[in-house]
């Protein structure tokens, strides 16, 4: 499913704003959104999923305005994974997965119990099966991120938006999760927000960049991953080296 943003503008009461957001995301490749702290990446994600209403412009899902979707229709099509982890009630790991994916299951009855196998399969894919009965609060940050991804894998939404899904993962798990997401992106629309330069270097789909002066650019990653653009977005000198294949290696000057 195609996710498009047309001229999105949004301002908070304290005058912070994002403006002129134009974006067009299709299945095939993983898409990236990056930029310095406080530039408004999360705000854009919240606009794209309809949580915040834009002051002007609109978000379209296959040419239909997201505002016209009912909450439950939207929840089946679009999944989002946020960074905040403020759960005080103790759901177990298994319960949490089935709750995250509950838009898939009917309200009454125990259809969700019949999906036991699917849930177990996704839990084992993210190496959480042996922790299925543990309370979510006992998980580490990385395990929690894997849990949220397992939930999304069960829900299997057409569009998946993720806010720094690899921030707490160790390098091995980060690579596994990225493999999973790249594969998932082949026939689903996936956008991730990240600060990880190694990941950015792998970007081949759409890259959207936002700097802290409110400038937004988006385009093909191959064109935007260069020293001039990255230095201006992050406000510090960047070096971009092409490596084997289509990837590149990015780093920022330590002494600035």
């Amino acid at each position: 499913m195609l996710l498009r943003a047309e001229n999105l503008t949004f301002a908070y009461k304290n005058s912070f704003m994002v403006k002129n957001i134009n974006l067009s995301l299709a299945p095939g490749k993983l898409h990236y959104l990056a930029g310095p702290n406080g530039a408004g990446k999360s705000t854009i994600l919240k606009l794209l999923c309809g949580y915040l209403h834009p002051a002007s412009g609109k978000v379209l899902l296959d040419e239909n305005d997201i505002a016209n979707f009912s909450n439950s229709q939207r929840a089946e099509i679009m999944g989002t994974v946020w960074q905040d982890r403020t759960l005080d009630l103790d759901f177990s790991v298994r319960e949490m997965v089935s709750i995250i994916a509950s838009a898939r299951f009917p309200r009454w009855g125990t259809a969700e119990r019949k999906n036991e196998e699917l849930i177990a399969c996704k839990l084992s894919e993210f190496a959480l099966l042996d922790k299925a009965k543990q309370p979510v609060s006992t998980l580490s940050g990385g395990e929690y991120q894997r849990l949220m991804l397992a939930g999304m894998a069960v829900l299997a939404p057409e569009i998946l938006l993720l806010d720094e899904p690899t921030a707490a993962l160790d390098p091995a798990w980060r690579n596994k999760v990225m493999k999973f997401l790249e594969e998932y992106a082949l026939d689903h629309t996936v956008l991730i927000v990240t600060h990880d330069l190694e990941l950015l270097g792998r970007a081949q789909g759409v890259l959207a960049l936002l700097d802290d002066r409110g400038n937004f650019i988006s385009g093909n990653a191959a064109e935007l991953l260069n020293e001039k653009v990255l230095s201006s977005v992050y406000g510090t000198a960047a070096t971009v080296e092409k490596t084997a294949g289509k990837n590149c290696r990015i780093y920022f000057d330590w002494d600035q």
Binding site: N71, T80, R107
Partner: peptide
């Protein structure tokens, strides 16, 4: 289902289709 979603906070609830 909505009660579960509310217990997971505003953003997660929205993702689950719950106001």
């Amino acid at each position: 289902r909505e009660l579960n979603a509310v217990a997971m906070g505003s953003l997660n609830a929205w993702s689950m289709g719950v106001d």
